[in-house]
Each structure stands twice: as structure tokens, then as C-alpha cells.
């Protein structure tokens, strides 16, 4: 029912759909994904008011596009819907944020950005969340990321020992306290370079 209504509203932007293991999955084109999510949330018949999860899937087949997955739910109707967008890996990995629709998307999108390097355009605070801000090895859940990381164990140890514990506050946080100008000059320099300077 949802799929046919979606097709009616969005036409060719609904790329395809499938039912796998009892779950309905809809592939939407990237250009219309934000409209489709907003429509699913706001249309009374659909009423997908609850965002269960946002994640991404990269397949072992390197030719296959990377997929962004939204798990939606209607609490009142007790139905689930999985919405996907396929992203060509040769182009920049970008999708519009749905933070304006669900505040719960904030950390979930940050996590996908952190783990897969997908940019959610329009997200107000897209920073790394699980890895530290100076992490320079790439995006851990990508298939080209080896299980033990890109750097050698020796290099990882060296960087961990060389990390400056004083640089724990972000610049934004230091500006709250107006403490930035009271810091020693040498530390200000380091912070201005973001202390994330090495090996990008």
C-alpha cells in the first residue's frame, strides 16, 4: 500500500521495491529522498513518525553502490518500512540530512559519517562521534579498511603516545569559556591546527 502510494506521489524517483524476509524495502533516488521521507512522516495515511535507525551498507562487490538505509516505523499503524538510497562510490558520497524531520537522526548520521565517510548535507554538527576528532586512518566500516587499520601497530602506538591530553577540548568548547586566549601561545598554535594535522 505504501509502495504504490509512494510511486503515485514520486513517480520515477522510486527506483524499485522488494519484500525480503517479510520487510518492505523501497529504493528512492537521492534527489528526492528528503521529500520522500518528509512525505512518509507527514502524510496521515502513512504516518511513519518514528525513525528506528539510519545506517549504511557497503557490499563486498566493489562495483555495487553503497546504500544508505533508513528504518522507519509507524507507531500507530505498527508497520515498518525500510528506505534505501544507492550511492555511486565514484561520486562524492552525499545525501541530504533528515535532522530537520527527526532530531534522533543527529547522532545516527554522525555515526554513518564517522564509519563510512558519507556526508549528510545540511546536518548542523557533522563531526566524528565514535572515533576521536584527530583520527586520520579513514572510515573503519568501509570494505577497503583493513581490520587492524591502515597504519602499522607501531605508528598507532606512536600517535597514541604523542597525543596531547590538553587538546581534549574542541575549539568550540574553549570559545564558550573564553579560555582560548588565556592558553599558552604554543598550545593555541596547536589547537588552531586542530591537533589533527598529521597524515590526512
Amino acid at each position: 500500500m505504501t509502495v504504490s502510494a509512494l510511486r503515485e506521489a514520486f513517480g520515477s524517483a522510486i527506483v524499485r521495491h522488494a519484500v525480503i524476509c517479510g520487510d518492505t524495502i523501497v529504493w528512492v533516488s537521492r534527489d528526492r529522498i528528503h521529500d520522500a521521507l518528509a512525505w512518509l512522516q507527514a502524510t496521515p495515511d502513512q504516518d511513519y513518525n518514528y525513525l528506528t535507525d539510519i545506517t549504511a551498507v557497503e557490499y563486498r562487490d566493489t562495483e555495487r553502490p553503497l546504500e544508505i538505509v533508513w528504518q522507519l516505523r509507524s507507531l500507530a499503524r505498527k508497520v515498518d518500512l525500510r528506505v534505501k538510497v544507492a550511492l555511486d562510490k565514484r561520486a562524492p558520497l552525499e545525501v541530504p540530512t533528515c535532522w530537520d524531520l527527526w532530531k534522533g537522526a543527529d547522532w545516527l548520521e554522525r555515526e554513518v559519517y564517522d564509519m563510512f565517510g558519507v556526508t549528510f548535507t545540511g546536518h548542523p554538527d557533522l563531526r566524528r562521534i565514535l572515533m576521536w576528532e584527530t583520527y586520520a586512518e579513514g572510515y573503519p566500516l568501509r570494505k577497503d579498511f583493513p581490520l587492524r587499520g591502515h597504519f602499522s601497530r607501531a605508528e598507532q602506538t606512536r600517535q597514541a603516545l604523542a597525543a596531547n591530553p590538553e587538546a581534549n577540548y574542541s575549539l568550540e568548547e574553549l570559545s564558550i569559556a573564553e579560555a582560548y586566549h588565556e592558553l599558552p601561545k604554543e598550545m593555541r598554535e596547536r589547537l588552531r591546527h586542530g591537533e589533527r594535522g598529521f597524515l590526512k
Binding site: D53, V57, E58, Y59
Partner: peptide, 29 residues
């Protein structure tokens, strides 16, 4: 709500194992 999301390509190991972590999402508020 704890959710596990498996994507399989037919091999014995999953392509993707996603944990929907309730504590993480609750903490975001």
C-alpha cells in the same frame, strides 16, 4: 529496542551486521 540488521551475500559471514543500540540513541537526547 535492540535491533540487529543483517545483510547477507550468501556466504557464511554477513556483509553487514548493524546493531541498533538503544542506549546510544537514548543518550542522544
Amino acid at each position: 529496542e535492540l535491533g540487529y540488521y543483517f545483510v547477507s551475500d550468501g556466504s557464511a559471514k554477513p556483509v553487514r551486521w548493524r546493531i541498533r543500540p538503544p542506549a546510544f540513541i537514548n543518550l542522544a537526547s
